[in-house]
C-alpha cells in the first residue's frame, strides 16, 4: 500500500518534469503516450479486471472525438462542454454495448465488439458530408497557443485524475465483484453479486474514460479521420500496450503505453517494421508470459504473494 503510493508519487513527479526535458516533438510524443495510457488503462479495467474482452475501446474513443469535434464545429458549443459531451456520448454507447453483450461470453463478445468498431468506422466514412470522411475533419484546438506544454499538463491531469477514479473503483467492493465475475460468473451470482449491474458498470466506466481520451485527442491533434483513429490495427497496438504492461494492472497499462509509444517513435527509421516487432512482441509475450512483462517484474520486487489491492486484503 505504502509502496504503491510512493511509486505513484514518483511517477507523477517524473510526469510533471517531462516538459522541462523534452521539447516540441518529443513532448508531442509524450502527449500521445499519455493519451494511449488512458485508453489502455480503460481497456485493462474492462478486460483485465472484469473479463470482458472488448475490441471497441478505440471506436469509443473515436465516438468521443467526433462527438466533441462536431459539437464545437456545428453547434459552437464551448470547448469544455463539448469535451464532456464527447465522453458522455461514449458512455451512453458503452452502456448500450454493455447491455447488448450481457449474455455473450468470450469469443462472441470479441466478435460483436470488432463488428461494432467496424460499423462505427464505416458509418463515419460514409457520412462524409458531416465528418469529411477520409479527407479529415479539421477540429478547433483546445488552446490558442502553439506551445505543447499546456496540452501536456492537461493530458497528464486527465490521466492522473482518471487513474485515481479507476483505481478507487477497482480497490472498492466493485473491483472485487468485477474480478469475481471474471473468474466465475455463476458462482458470483449465487454469492449475491448482481452480475448484470457490475458487468454493465465496468463497461460504462471504461467507455467514459475512452471517450474522454478521444475528445481530448481531437482538440489536440486538430485533424480526425475515422481510419487513423479506429482501424483494427490501432486496437491491436492498444492491446499490445496493455498486454506488455500486464493485463491485470492499471500501472502496467500506463507503463506499457508509454514504453510502446516512445519505442515506436525511437524506432522510426524501421518504418513499418517497428509494428511488426510490436506484433511479434505481443504474441510472444502472450505465449510465454501471460501476465505481461512489466507487472511480473514489479511483483518480484514487491515480493508478496497477493497484492493488497482491494478492501479485503487490508489487515483486519
Amino acid at each position: 500500500m505504502k509502496k504503491n503510493v510512493i511509486g505513484a508519487g514518483i511517477a507523477i513527479l517524473i510526469g510533471v518534469a517531462v516538459p522541462l526535458v523534452f521539447r516540441s516533438y518529443w513532448l508531442h510524443v509524450a502527449i500521445i503516450a499519455l493519451y494511449y495510457a488512458l485508453l489502455a488503462s480503460s481497456w485493462t479495467m474492462l478486460a483485465g479486471f472484469s473479463g470482458q474482452f472488448s475490441f471497441a475501446t478505440m471506436a469509443l474513443g473515436g465516438i468521443g472525438a467526433y462527438t466533441s469535434a462536431l459539437l464545437v464545429i456545428n453547434v459552437q458549443l464551448p470547448m469544455w462542454l463539448a469535451l464532456i459531451c464527447g465522453a458522455l456520448a461514449a458512455t451512453v454507447v458503452g452502456l448500450l454495448i454493455g447491455v447488448l453483450v450481457l449474455r455473450m461470453r468470450g469469443p462472441y463478445l470479441a466478435l460483436f465488439t470488432i463488428a461494432f468498431s467496424e460499423l462505427v468506422r464505416i458509418t463515419l466514412n460514409a457520412e462524409y458530408q458531416l465528418t469529411r470522411g477520409d479527407m479529415g475533419l479539421t477540429v478547433p484546438h483546445l488552446y490558442t497557443t502553439v506551445s505543447k506544454t499546456p496540452y501536456y499538463y492537461t493530458m497528464l491531469g486527465l490521466l492522473v485524475g482518471s487513474l485515481l477514479v479507476m483505481w478507487t473503483v477497482l480497490r472498492s467492493r466493485y473491483g472485487l465483484f468485477f474480478r469475481a465475475i471474471r473468474e466465475q460468473e455463476e458462482a458470483a451470482a449465487v454469492m449475491g453479486v448482481n452480475v448484470v449491474r457490475y458487468k454493465i458498470m465496468a463497461f460504462v466506466i471504461s467507455s467514459f474514460f475512452a471517450g474522454l481520451a478521444g475528445s481530448f485527442f481531437a482538440h489536440y491533434i486538430g485533424t480526425l479521420t475515422p481510419n487513423s483513429m479506429m482501424e483494427i490495427p490501432r486496437m491491436g497496438l492498444l492491446i499490445a500496450m496493455s498486454v506488455i504492461g500486464g493485463i491485470e494492472s492499471l500501472a502496467g497499462a500506463v507503463a506499457g503505453a508509454v514504453l510502446v509509444e516512445f519505442l515506436q517513435e525511437y524506432l522510426r527509421a524501421l518504418e513499418m517494421w517497428r509494428f511488426v516487432i510490436f506484433g511479434l512482441a505481443l504474441v510472444l509475450i502472450l505465449r510465454f508470459s501471460q501476465n505481461g512483462l512489466i507487472y511480473p517484474i514489479y511483483q518480484r520486487f514487491a515480493a508478496r504473494r497477493v497484492e493488497p489491492r482491494t478492501v479485503a486484503d487490508a489487515e483486519a
Binding site: 472485487l176 474480478r179 469475481a180 471474471r182 473468474e183 466465475q184 455463476e186 458462482a187 458470483a188 491485470e248 504473494r305 497477493v306 482491494t310 479485503a312 486484503d313
Partner: peptide, 10 residues
C-alpha cells in the same frame, strides 16, 4: 467454483 485469481480472504 472458487475465484481462482483472488486471495482466499477476497
Amino acid at each position: 467454483q472458487v475465484f481462482h485469481r483472488m486471495s482466499v480472504l477476497e
